[in-house]
């Protein structure tokens, strides 16, 4: 059975209080595609890491203007692609940012990208300093742990 192509987009303030909303929205969108409960939990964890990165890193307090996160969700025959996008400061060195344990905040683990890579079937990061960052993750049902 081929999954119907479906698309949804939500935009929300880049604040920690919206993390639960983002997780549930992504899992709800993916729920009809045959993912197991455990796989939906993996999607929630990956989304939580991506949105947390936007909240913590994309919008330094000194920046004025709207701090928003946009989450695009799109189905395909491969599964669901969830893109988390911000219009914040961007990442100058993406490879360095994806290094396990790399963080600019001493209170954090620096394991967000490592987790996202472990949880998603594939992950791509595009960023432009001063313009923002987009993290796109593909999840396919039935891939196992």
């Amino acid at each position: 059975m081929h999954a119907k192509v479906n698309h949804a987009r939500v935009e929300f303030d880049a604040i920690p209080g919206n993390l639960g909303f983002a997780r549930v929205a992504a899992a709800s969108f993916a729920a009809s595609l045959g993912f197991t409960v455990e796989e939906l939990e993996d999607i929630k964890l990956a989304v939580s890491e991506a949105v947390s990165n936007c909240i913590v890193h994309a919008y330094p307090k000194s920046n004025s203007g709207p701090a928003k996160v946009r989450m695009n969700m799109e189905t395909s025959e491969s599964g669901v692609t969830i893109s988390i996008e911000d219009t914040g400061v961007g990442i100058a060195d993406i490879a360095a940012a994806r290094t396990p344990g790399m963080t600019t905040d001493s209170q954090r683990l620096g394991m967000g990208f490592t987790l996202m890579e472990a949880l998603a079937n594939s992950l791509s990061v595009t960023s432009e300093p001063g313009a923002g960052t987009c993290v796109a993750m593909l999840f396919s049902p039935g891939r196992g742990g």
Partner: peptide
């Protein structure tokens, strides 16, 4: 019911 790297940190 849910924990991510912020909680584990």
């Amino acid at each position: 019911t849910f924990i991510d790297s912020s909680g584990i940190g």
